[in-house]
Amino acid sequence: MLPFLGIIQALGLLTSFALLGTRSKGAGPQWLAFQGLLCGLVPIIMHADGLTTQVVLLAIGNIVLKGIVFPWVLLRLRARAPYHREVVPFIGIVGSTLFGIPVLALSVWLALRMTPALKHAPFVMLVLSIFLIFVGLFLIVTRRKALMQVIGYLVLENGIFVFSAIAISGTLLLVELGVLLDAFVAVFVMGIAILHINSEFGFMDVDQLTALRG
């Protein structure tokens, strides 16, 4: 079990760094899809010795939604969007990548502090989930384009999903369904909003929305 989780952790961290360091068009949703796929595998590996239908359904649902549907929606959005790349993020991609390293160290430290409380949670996954949450928040805060912000939101959701998959044993489905619903609504609301903002004002820069203040 551990080697698999180790690989998933490494790949998950890689996708996060790729998202921090990407600026080419289309790369964001693709990395997100890969990350969603990886996170969907976590509950299956975690419960490999006693797979229940519930777990399998949850995993499949997750993979389908976050590995396929959401990225596809975002790719479609991107295809319609007038811009090609995250022109000037508030923090450049080099800065973002460098920022990721101390944050990863912080995640390790936090995970070490949490381990006594979460005895059954594998350490590597704990690190990954905390790091994903941080990266998601970071993307939401520092990116100008609504598309990257939605991606940040989904990265955050991935983090919460991994955390619930390893930390919460009984009420997994309940928690996850709630969060997933949030994410679902968020993606579509944001997606629709982006499209409307775009067709109405001709831009998708979130910081320009301040112009709407009364």
Partner: peptide, 17 residues
């Protein structure tokens, strides 16, 4: 090159504990 450095830094942090 920075990307390469990041990969190794991540690897170091993973095996740190």
């Amino acid at each position: 090159i920075l990307g390469a450095a990041t990969l190794s830094a991540v690897a170091f942090i993973i095996i740190l504990v």
